[in-house]
Design a protein around this nucleic acid. Structure first.
Lengths: 253, 253
DNA sequence: CCCGTTCGTGCCCGATTGTGCCCGAACCTG
DNA sequence: CAGGTTCGGGCACAATCGGGCACGAACGGG
């Protein structure tokens, strides 16, 4: 039996039973658990199942995002501190744009209940989190929704950002550096980020220090577009000074 | 049972019952209270429940009037049957628009995992539910988000629906009757519904029989705009016949 | 026909995760 | 304010994970 056949069958079993587990599958297909793990990883990357400890669940069954709750726990502390520090950059009143991303989602969750703001976002999880916040006027930016990031992209999103002007944008990036600027793996998302940057008077980049020096496929701006970078204390003082030399203020939370 | 499964189930219990408590959950799932606390913490971090001493309550239900919640749960069976019946109206492939509303949300949750569709919606909960469905290309309609319904309205939404053409629209209404047509309490939502109706080749109305004869502030169309009404068996045969006389097919699930 | 490359798989081992237990602190209730 | 309940952080243990390495089969160019 070939690997793709096996994966197809695993997917069928997962959908039929609502769940599969590594050891039973290994027994069933007469292969080792490692191979099953590789299969599940492949299916997970394809977005067809959701990997869990010990097995997998077919995608679409869960209506919450485990990664938002726990998978980010590796850098959760840094992200929390960054989000906390970002609160200080919120205007007392006015309009802010929230980009997609777990750190920005933390910020959204940390918004004080008495905050009174207009928030614009193209991120589905962030919108869901803010929808019942009493003081927030929420504007959702539409578009095609990418499965992986749950963020809206493409024409509708670009046009919406082209029509507005916000006081502050909180933006995330998968990689940032003085040389290569701000990068992210997906072109469509990069385009939306670029449009959001253009729509904001002030740009605040939220990125933990692990992103520094990283470089991904799509570039959506340079550090010169960023007024303030909020990162964690693991960014070296030298790197911070280099960035500040370019005119970007740096906060190490 | 995997942790995410348990958390999903806890979330369901919380939404159904309006509340959950740590000890009962520990008993129910045969784990210790610590584990339940961790689950609740994860759900709390994801913004899906709100943690309280001794348990948790589902997020977003805080401002719900109890009688509204109760009415919702009493009609749950009907809504489920209606949603099930609506599945038969899905095209094998093509584009469908999903309006906001609890019955339509149930339809969204009941979409088979192997479905392959393009879905357009302006409802935040429905979008969240479909965002990681592997076979669905999801397009989100943006706009101002109303707190109460978590649906996007106003200019962006109207323009988006003005630009598309879908095979089927599944629409909800707070009231429907041959005389007064389709009504809902909010003008802005009515405008969006009207735009959605105009964007679809076929209009399917999902409404339990309690909505029949009800009349609300904003009217967004007549029964003549509806090709098919799916309701429950409590709608009298006479009423059904009257509606069918107007050219609208009626299914009593 | 040969041989280097690639891919799938199995094995090993340190790292991670989920869960339970414990205890001081915080919290409700009366 | 007192007493019991619940919380949350720390620790431990077992299961699982994932990266690295090796082996063998299939493939393809010379």
């Amino acid at each position: 039996m070939y690997a793709p056949e096996r994966q197809q069958e695993i997917l069928r079993l997962a959908r039929d039973g609502g769940r599969v587990d590594v050891l039973s599958l290994a027994e069933e297909f007469q292969v080792t658990a490692e191979t099953i793990r590789r299969d599940l990883k492949a299916l997970d990357r394809a977005g067809l199942v959701r990997r869990v400890h010990g097995g997998a669940i077919p995608a679409g069954r869960l209506d919450f995002e485990p990664d938002l709750a726990e998978r980010e726990s590796t850098a959760a502390d840094e992200k929390d501190r960054i989000a906390k520090a970002a609160l200080a950059e919120l205007p007392a009143e006015g309009t802010v744009i929230l980009d997609a991303g777990t750190t920005v989602a933390r910020l959204a969750g940390a918004l004080p209940l008495e905050a009174s703001l207009t928030v614009v976002t193209h991120s589905l999880p962030i919108a869901a989190r803010l929808a019942d916040h009493p003081g927030i006027q929420l504007h959702l930016v539409g578009g095609r929704v990418r499965h992986r990031t749950r963020a809206a992209v493409d024409a509708w999103a670009l046009r919406a950002y082209g029509e507005i002007r916000a006081d502050v944008l909180f933006v995330a990036a998968n990689g940032f550096s003085a040389e290569h600027g701000l990068t992210t793996p997906d072109l469509a998302e990069a385009a939306v980020k670029r449009a959001a940057v253009a729509a904001a008077r002030r740009v605040v980049l939220l990125a933990d220090s692990a992103k520094h020096g990283e470089e991904h496929f799509a570039r959506f701006g340079g550090l010169g577009d960023v007024d303030l970078l909020i990162t964690d204390s693991a960014l070296s003082a030298a790197d911070a000074a280099a960035i500040e030399g370019g005119g970007t203020e740096v906060v190490r939370a």
